[in-house]
Design a protein around this nucleic acid. Structure first.
Lengths: 258, 258
DNA sequence: TGCTTCAAGTTGTACAGCCAACTTTGATCC
DNA sequence: GGATCAAAGTTGGCTGTACAACTTGAAGCA
């Protein structure tokens, strides 16, 4: 069996690459407590034989768990289980709706304003376009179980905005219909800081002007690096926190001045 | 030349693994604009020949850049340069001193209080110890160019605290001496949210009690997953922001309720 | 012009093997 | 009893090979 290939070879019953499926299986096994809290994983060789794959494929799967902070990884000893699970996915961070549902809460959204027009220089830079290019703007109030939580100001390039504009105005999720239309979100950059509510923020969120808010600014791109959306989300205090795992091996987090 | 091995084989002049050195070289090449903004990288095969390594090693190096959000990565086309550079390292996030120096500012620290004693239940959980175990506590005011920026409350398990206690009280960095003593920081989990200054915060930072602060709570561990420190850092508004890059392939960021 | 088809180029996935570096354990020795 | 050393076990690192999946641009055709 030299060179089985990705989907054409032996397995091929489910979707995705073999190592991804293996990573999911291992994540679920850990979550179910199969190895215990703080327990040791089987050796790479054992896992390879158990699942009928090569050691290289096992290592790819384990690298995923490692990056998510689920297991340790050091030379000389078997891997140790750290967190029992972290179901959080890339999309739960991108989509307010997905996130809320994963929490077991009821997401809501009221579209305050929707418009399109030429991008000002700032907006153009955020979306990597030339100033004056047509863009779409959406302002929405987001709720959890009918309670206002966050105010969301998003801008889209024209080809994305056209899809958004065609949606049901009462649609709760905007991200999911995009995915259905074949728009692929691949990367995102999130910046978190503290700002003070302006008059519009205060009116919509029901707080005082000048009161503090958690701000998350986000730029999402497709696999080619082309910006798909840029958003400025402002949360009422006490409603969210952001958690990051990083390691000496792979760092994606940074602290910035101001 | 089948199976050259890590440091024993051909190269071996500098420190670290071959793919890490290659990743650094590529990062610097990108930062210097060698491939232009938005330019294309050479193919994996070309890079392999240019640097005298196998394609597998090139791919390991590129995976690092990918995780840092420096380049795209999609099947069928050459990689495209995204960000021009992100020198930020794991340690600049861990160490206030390292971070400040990378910014070109002068870091300062005044130790307000240092003590040791048995851990209360909360502290014990944060460090993964039994309640009542001896721990060390440090309270410090951090400054940039003599201006107060942040208040830092850190606790250490005994074996680390012993090293801290032996330091010069005026030492600016605590993390760096630990590294010199052979303490290896491998992983960290950071949680960012918004809190209101208590009386102590306000007195030390020179703000009003109840005024908003950015809080970063951090747990750092060694390669085996054993906690080395737990810290609660509170920044004055407008002094910092936190940025994260994540992708559908590897997610380490999550948003949480409250 | 506009469309399809094809071929070349590039990255993704998977396999196999080898050695190095490190951890742990147990045996040996003093 | 305690320190030292050897061996086994495990992960890290690197190479080589093969094929699949995808992107792109050019050729060909209507």
């Amino acid at each position: 069996m030299a060179g089985a290939g990705a989907a054409g070879g032996a397995g091929g019953r489910a979707a995705g690459a073999r190592y991804r499926r293996l990573a999911t299986e291992l994540r679920e096994a850990i979550a179910s407590g199969a190895y215990g809290a703080g327990g040791r994983l089987p050796s790479e060789e054992e896992l390879a034989q158990q699942h009928g794959v090569s050691r290289g494929t096992v290592r790819q799967a384990l690298a995923v768990l490692r990056a998510n902070g689920l297991v340790t990884s050091r030379r000389g000893t078997r891997r140790v289980v750290l967190g029992t699970a972290r179901t959080q996915s890339f999309f739960e961070l991108l989509s307010f709706t997905r996130w809320a549902r994963a929490l077991g809460e009821v997401p809501g959204g009221r579209t305050i304003d929707i418009s399109s027009g030429p991008a000002n220089p700032l907006e153009a830079e955020q979306l990597g376009l030339e100033p004056g290019t047509q863009i779409h703007r959406v302002l929405r109030l987001r709720t959890l179980s009918r309670v206002p939580i966050m105010i969301e100001r998003t801008i889209y390039p024209e080809h994305i905005g056209a899809v958004i504009a065609g949606l049901d105005p009462d649609a709760i999720s905007h991200t999911e219909p995009l995915a259905d239309q074949g728009v692929v979100f691949a990367d995102a950059e999130h910046t978190v800081d503290l700002v003070y509510a302006d008059d519009e923020d205060a009116r919509l969120l029901g707080c005082d002007p000048g009161s503090p808010l958690m701000r998350e600014r986000r730029r999402a791109t497709d696999p080619a690096g082309t910006p798909l959306e840029w958003s400025d989300d402002r949360y009422l205090p006490g409603t969210v926190s952001f958690t990051v795992h990083n390691s000496a091996a792979s760092t994606a987090l940074s602290r910035r001045r101001g």
